Amino acid sequence: MTIEVPKKKLNDVNISTDVGDIDFEGVRANTATIWNNISDVNFNRSQINSVEIKSESSRLNFNHTSFNNGNVKIDNGSIKGDNSIVRDSVFIIERGNINLKNMEKTCDLKAFAKNGSINFDYQDKPKDTLLKLNPSDGKKVVNNPNFEDEKTGNGKNILEFYTNHGDIKIN
């Protein structure tokens, strides 16, 4: 099913599904709430001011997208972001990896992977960022030369990552 909406900013988007992929293309919305059992969720060139996603089994993908006030919880799957900005958000995955690449320099988020790794790669030099990296049973690797003692600038943007069984890597 395809639903096309006017190009103006939406107030609320609410989607609940058992199966079937969910694709957002160029969507601007105040809030998006997605509840699904087994489906992929894809955002491309979208801007969501407040997003909540809960899923049993899903692959969340976002590209050239802005998330603010995000709350994402996936039991089994993956979270992949590219060329995006995430602010004031929490990503939780029970089984699977979180891979965020070419991310904007002022991202601010918490992430937890119970059985999986977290990889975060900056597009440009990070700005005013503090790293709080906590792998229980894994390695912590910071390959980005802009961090001194896991901090750049005043540290007002915080990347707080936890894994139980997995590595945390910052590039």
Rank of each mutant, 00 (worst) to 15 (best):
F62E: 03
N42A: 13
G26L: 09
N144V: 01
I92T: 12
G116S: 09
N97S: 11
N76K: 05
S46F: 10
K73W: 07
R45A: 02
D75F: 00
I85E: 01
N71H: 11
E150G: 03
M103T: 12
S89T: 15
Q47R: 01
V41Q: 08
W35I: 12
V141L: 00
A113C: 10
R59G: 12
T106G: 04
R45L: 05
N164Y: 00
G166Y: 02
N143W: 03
D128T: 07
I53T: 05
W35D: 09
N102F: 08
K139P: 05
L109Y: 15
N144C: 10
S136C: 03
K114T: 11
N99T: 14
N119E: 04
I92K: 03
T163G: 05
V72I: 07
T152S: 15
K125V: 11
T106E: 11
F112I: 14
D149W: 00
K101D: 01
A29S: 14
V41C: 13
N99K: 05
I93E: 11
F120V: 12
M103G: 04
N76A: 04
V141S: 02
S66Y: 05
G166W: 00
L133E: 10
L131Q: 02
D167L: 04
N37Y: 10
I48S: 08
S50G: 02
T163I: 10
F24N: 03
N146M: 06
K101P: 00
N143E: 04
S78H: 00
K101W: 04
V90E: 14
I74S: 13
N102D: 03
D88I: 08
N76H: 02
F43R: 00
E94L: 11
G81Q: 11
K151S: 07
D75Q: 13
Y162Q: 14
N146C: 03
D149E: 15
N63M: 06
L100I: 07
L60G: 12
G116T: 11
G155A: 13
K101R: 03
G26I: 02
N144E: 06
E150K: 05
V90Q: 10
I34P: 12
D40H: 06
E104P: 00
S136D: 05
D137R: 04
N49C: 00
D75W: 02
D121Q: 10
E148Y: 01
Q123D: 13
L100P: 01
F91H: 08
P126W: 00
T163N: 13
L159E: 14
D108Y: 07
K105Y: 09
V41K: 09
S55Q: 04
A29P: 12
Q47M: 01
N63P: 02
E150N: 15
S58C: 09
N134W: 01
F147E: 13
I79V: 15
K140A: 06
I74L: 14
I98E: 10
L159Q: 12
A32L: 10
C107P: 04
T152Q: 08
F147N: 11
